[in-house]
Design a protein around this nucleic acid. Sequence first.
DNA 1: GGGTTGAATAGGAAAATCCGATGACACTGC
DNA 2: GCAGTGTCATCGGATTTTCCTATTCAACCC
Lengths: 310, 310
Amino acid sequence: MTLHQLRYFVAVVTNKNFTRAAEKCLVAQPSLSQQIIQLERELGHKLLERLGRTVRPTEAGKMFHERAVAILASVDEAKRRVVEVGDPERGTLRVGAIPTVAPYLLPPLITRFLRDFPRAAFEVTEDLTEHTVRGCLDGSLDFGLVALPIGDPRLLVEPILREELLLVTPSGHRFRRKRKVCILDLIGEPFILLSEAHCLGEQIVDFCAQQSCQPLITCQSAQLLTVQELVAAGQGISLIPAMACAKDKSPERHCRSLADSKPSRTLAVIRHKDRYQSPLAARFVEALKYYARACPCPGVTDMAETTSVH
Amino acid sequence: MTLHQLRYFVAVVTNKNFTRAAEKCLVAQPSLSQQIIQLERELGHKLLERLGRTVRPTEAGKMFHERAVAILASVDEAKRRVVEVGDPERGTLRVGAIPTVAPYLLPPLITRFLRDFPRAAFEVTEDLTEHTVRGCLDGSLDFGLVALPIGDPRLLVEPILREELLLVTPSGHRFRRKRKVCILDLIGEPFILLSEAHCLGEQIVDFCAQQSCQPLITCQSAQLLTVQELVAAGQGISLIPAMACAKDKSPERHCRSLADSKPSRTLAVIRHKDRYQSPLAARFVEALKYYARACPCPGVTDMAETTSVH
DNA sequence: GGGTTGAATAGGAAAATCCGATGACACTGC
DNA sequence: GCAGTGTCATCGGATTTTCCTATTCAACCC
């Protein structure tokens, strides 16, 4: 058995296809096929079912895949830890973050962190909550930045900051003339919602349902930026995280707090409970908390020193 | 990085010597040297300090060694689990046991188990408590049979049976004429002790100290069998586990229970808390408990259904 | 059926690994 | 000191493994 064989096998399972897997692994398809066949021969079991056009793992294959991913992650971690020995400020931090957080929180944070730790390096992976969680579990991420709630008991969840969701309206909207806008004012208002694939989209729907306020959803978009631009274009109003509003300098739209029940979300760092945390990673989490306290952005409040919840 | 390189590296660390490691790995020494050098080059760090005649790992090397052992164990486990898929009664059980237990408990148990599960296989490793514990921790053993106490919090400890330590005397000893022998009768009596490397040796010393009874230790031996033979040869008396007495058919020595405070030890199965337990391994632990209940040997009592202790 | 997609096979090239012989170095014993 | 020994690194060539291109074979799709 070879680590290459494990890599090839994992690639086939994730791509469900030999040819694409071979491309990803930068080898020719026959080479990959041979290695898989040899792996199966050594183990004495078929790992993959080749049925016509699709490939999927057998029962044994599923089990083996799980272990193979763990082994590869473990190899990777061993390598990275060797680099860290003797210079705890050197190393690569693999950070996952959801798309509604990553562009607003990470760039200033990473910039500042690299000023203090110039020999650190970053690998940022922007993806939905589900994938970020999976990355933390299988070891391909050191930690993830996501919004609560997070349920997995294998993860350590540290709340970092609470972020208000602000009302964003086109500049010329009639709400601008109101002294205050309440949640129930949104009823019947054309509303632009983030796709429910994002946890933020879900959370807004839940919040509105709780407040018995059903806005008139006119449009669903996959990106926060698109939502903002649609608002500017006069297609409706929306609720947007405070940090996204703070970054938004466009004169065509305007952000404000709701007057009565202010919706918010809590961002948290998640990481695997049992996995080793490098000194550098620990420093980054510290920096993150410090940043939350010092954040100049209105609508963002740091968490009181909470103990970790799972 | 290659799995072979990891194996070679681990072999060098355990043997503290390239040449011997190469022999163990069934390759020539230059091949092994090259692979180690390449591994070090890839990681960008020296892993081993070659100082004159001895080799020892650097700081980075120690850390990497720990991970390498875990990775290799994990590869091994993945292989073994593939074999188990589809036939949960097939597989290899890697059992560790201390020398004062292994020859008395395992042979009948394994014989009986193989009658019920003929497609199972065994790999028995007989070694002192410390090594057995280490094997369970690093994954080279599925479980271990040891005597309490066991302190490591990463282990699951299930007490199996309590075994009395019986007094063994030469056939013609004056104790044979006594109706009962008490612990304090042993004072000043020539006593043959098992080497304190064995936990049993330690336990007997502790027990005697507790009872303020200091026998006259005339001889320390590394094997239980040697102790028994020395007793038969009239060199003294000793305390021997009940199962060892039951196996002992020699007419030259005689076993009996102490009349007052009966010393005993508790045997337990230990295994890693987080590691996967194969169905077959679970069946073996069951068989072990069943055997403890049905054990025909006087001085052995099974544990009441206890919850696992750590 | 002809076209397409995708995995296996074949044969030879390229690369990695291995081996024996040898060199370099330190320690040992006289 | 100085030969002797134990031990790891280096060298050149043999062996084995891996990889690539070209091709075949099988399933699916019109």
